[in-house]
Each structure stands twice: as structure tokens, then as C-alpha cells.
Deep mutational scan, measured.
Amino acid sequence: MTEYKLVVVGAGGVGKSALTIQLIQNHFVDEYDPTIEDSYRKQVVIDGETCLLDILDTAGQEEYSAMRDQYMRTGEGFLCVFAINNTKSFEDIHHYREQIKRVKDSEDVPMVLVGNKCDLPSRTVDTKQAQDLARSYGIPFIETSAKTRQGVDDAFYTLVREIRKHKEKMSKDGKKKKKKSKTKCVIM
């Protein structure tokens, strides 16, 4: 069974824990209790493949930012979460993405942009803004509501699919490099 290491990042209060708990335990946590770091595991079937999701729910508070490099190193894919009623959390996505790329030393890291709290009427981040940002990053965008469960499975499952595509691409690139290195030079 394939294991996928997913990391949920975003500013404090955007609903990272609520999304994760909704996926794992099928219930909505409405009281806000700032996370330092929590880890969850769940076995699911995605596109006919049974897999184990190892999900790291991270601290959004700035005082825990020193811990970010460590979990970013171990993560295979990242859910970059903002709240649709919090423009600052949307603007912060850029910083999370840049930090992930720096730590992973790669421009090509599996990510999904997630606009959470889409059940709320007080939207300050337009869907088109988020779609445009995701398009500019070359990553999928999904709106979710941890409260109603809308888009929750889709967000995590899409990230797994992005990781699969990335692994497939990397193995193809690896095979191309191996083929090239088999060419021999004969000096007579």
C-alpha cells in the first residue's frame, strides 16, 4: 500500500485542523484551538488504489514558523489553505509557496490551493482571484467548507493525484537520464 505524506499549511484560523478532522473523523470542530502540530493517518481508496494518507496539520501562528522547514522537508505534497473571508490569509499563500519551493529546492512541488469556509456569506476573496492565482502557479484550486464537508475529500484526493503525477514524471525523467548515460565512448 502506497503511503502519501501530505502537509496542510496556511495562516492561523483558516480551518486547516477543521478540514483535516472532517476528512479523518467526519465531524466539524467549530471551536478554535490553535494547533502546534498534529499528525493523522487514514486509509482510503483513490482511483481504485488503496493508500495510506499521513497528514500533518501544522501551526499557522507566526511564533511556530521555525518548525516549518522541518515538516516541509518531509512532506510530499501540500494543501495551501486560505479562508475566503480573510484576504490576508490569501496573500500569505505566496509566502508559504515560496518557502516550500526553497526548502524542497524545487520549482515543481505537488500543491493544491484550497479556499476554505465557502459556506460563509462574508467572502472577501473572489473565486476568480483564487483561480487566477492557482493557474499562475500551475496547481489545482478547490473551494471547501469544513463545516458542510463540501470539497473536503476532493481537496485531499486531488493532492494525492498531483503527487502521483509528480512521481510518474520524475521516474520518466530518471529513465531518460539513465538511457543517456548508457551511451559509451570508444577510443581507438
Rank of each mutant, 00 (worst) to 15 (best):
V14Q: 13
K104T: 13
T74M: 04
F78Q: 03
K117Y: 14
I100F: 08
T124E: 12
E62R: 03
D153N: 07
I187M: 15
I187A: 14
M111R: 01
D173W: 12
K117T: 14
E31S: 15
G151L: 13
H166D: 11
D57L: 00
Q129C: 14
S65D: 05
E63K: 07
Y40W: 15
L120G: 13
E31R: 15
Q131A: 08
G77I: 07
S106Y: 09
A11M: 12
S106Q: 14
A59Q: 01
E37P: 02
M67A: 03
Q43H: 06
M111F: 10
S145D: 03
V7Q: 12
G60F: 00
F141I: 03
A18N: 15
I187E: 15
F82I: 12
C118R: 11
D154Q: 07
L133H: 15
R123E: 10
K176R: 04
K101P: 02
K175E: 13
E62C: 04
I84A: 14
F28A: 01
A66V: 07
E162L: 08
L23Q: 15
F82P: 01
L79Y: 09
M72G: 06
P110S: 04
V112T: 08
A59I: 00
A66H: 14
G174Y: 02
T87G: 06
D30A: 13
H166R: 06
K169A: 02
H27P: 00
L133P: 14
N85S: 06
Q129K: 13
C185G: 13
D108H: 11
E63V: 04
N116V: 14
N116Y: 01
I46Q: 15
A18F: 00
V45L: 11
T35Q: 00
Q43L: 05
G10I: 02
K182M: 03
H27Y: 13
R73G: 10
K42E: 04
V9L: 13
Y96W: 15
G60N: 00
N26L: 05
D105P: 11
K184G: 11
N116A: 14
A18S: 07
F82S: 13
I142Y: 11
V45Q: 15
S122C: 09
H27S: 10
D38P: 01
S39E: 04
I46P: 11
V81I: 07
G77F: 14
G77R: 01
K182F: 06
R164L: 10
S181L: 12
A18T: 04
D173V: 05
G60W: 00
L53A: 14
V112K: 02
K172R: 03
T35P: 00
Q150L: 15
F141Y: 14
Y96C: 15
M72W: 06
F156G: 02
V9H: 14
A11F: 13
T2K: 13
T35D: 00
V14T: 13
V8S: 03
I55E: 00
Y71F: 06
R68C: 05
D38Q: 00
D54A: 06
T2E: 14
L52E: 08
T2L: 09
L6C: 11
D47G: 11
Q22E: 06
D54R: 10
E49D: 09
K182N: 04
E62M: 04
E62W: 03
F90I: 10
I100A: 09
R41Y: 04
F28Q: 01
E37M: 02
D173H: 15
D126C: 08
R68A: 07
D153F: 05
T183Q: 14
E98C: 11
Q43T: 10
V44G: 12
T58N: 00
I142L: 06
G48Y: 08
R149E: 08
E162F: 04
T35H: 00
V125L: 07
R41N: 04
E62Q: 07
N26H: 11
G13Q: 13
I139A: 05
Y71T: 11
K178T: 11
K104M: 13
E107N: 10
K117E: 12
G12E: 15
D54I: 03
T183S: 04
T20V: 08
V125Y: 09
Q22I: 08
S39M: 15
H166N: 05
D57S: 00
G48M: 08
M188R: 13
Q129R: 08
T2G: 13
Q129V: 08
S65P: 06
E31D: 12
K101W: 09
R123Q: 13
G48S: 10
V125N: 09
K128E: 06
I24G: 02
S145Y: 09
G60C: 00
R97G: 10
A66T: 12
R73I: 09
Q43K: 13
S136H: 12
Q131G: 11
Y71K: 12
D105K: 15
I93S: 14
L53S: 14
G10K: 05
L133N: 15
T87N: 06
A155D: 02
K169Q: 08
I24D: 01
Q61F: 03
K165D: 03
D57Q: 00
L19D: 14
F82R: 00
L19C: 12
Y137R: 12
F78A: 01
T50N: 13
E31C: 13
Y157E: 12
K176F: 04
Q129I: 04
V152I: 11
D57H: 00
S17N: 00
Y71S: 15
E62G: 04
I21R: 05
T58V: 03
E62L: 04
L52R: 15
K172D: 13
E62K: 06
R68T: 03
I55D: 00
D33E: 02
E63L: 03
E162V: 04
N86V: 09
K42A: 05
V8I: 09
L6I: 14
K172G: 04
Y137I: 08
R97E: 11
C80T: 04
H95P: 02
Y71I: 03
G15A: 01
K178H: 09
E162K: 11
K177L: 04
K175C: 15
K177T: 14
M188Q: 14
V9I: 12
Q43S: 13
S181R: 05
Y32E: 02
D69G: 09
L133A: 09
K147E: 06
I36D: 00
H166E: 09
E37W: 01
V81F: 09
D69W: 11
T183G: 15
T127S: 07
I36G: 00
V103Y: 04
D154I: 06
V8W: 01
A18D: 02
L133G: 06
R123Y: 09
D153P: 06
M170V: 12
V160H: 04
V7D: 03
I36Q: 00
V8C: 06
G138C: 15
D153I: 07
V186D: 15
V9R: 08
T58I: 02
V9E: 02
C51H: 13
G60Y: 00
K101Y: 13
K42F: 04
L133F: 06
L79A: 08
P121V: 10
E49Q: 12
V114T: 07
H27T: 07
L79S: 01
D154W: 05
A59W: 00
D119V: 04
R135Q: 08
G115D: 07
E3L: 10
T58P: 01
I139V: 08
D105M: 15
I163N: 02
Q99R: 06
K165R: 10
V160T: 09
K117R: 12
G75I: 04
Y40F: 01
Q22V: 02
Q43M: 14
S106R: 14
V14M: 10
Y71L: 03
V81S: 10
G12T: 12
P110I: 03
M111D: 01
R68S: 10
G60V: 00
S122G: 12
Q25L: 04
P34C: 02
V8F: 02
T124R: 08
R68Y: 02
K176Y: 15
E98Q: 12
T87R: 07
K176W: 13
Q70A: 15
K128A: 05
I55M: 06
D132M: 06
K42P: 01
M188G: 10
C118M: 12
N86G: 11
D92A: 11
I84V: 10
A130N: 10
S136A: 05
A83M: 13
S89G: 13
V103D: 09
E49F: 05
P121Y: 07
T124F: 08
Y157R: 13
M67H: 04
V103F: 15
V45S: 12
L6N: 03
F78L: 04
P121M: 10
T124K: 10
V186C: 07
V114Q: 02
N86Q: 10
E49P: 13
G48K: 10
V186M: 09
N86S: 05
G15L: 02
G75Y: 05
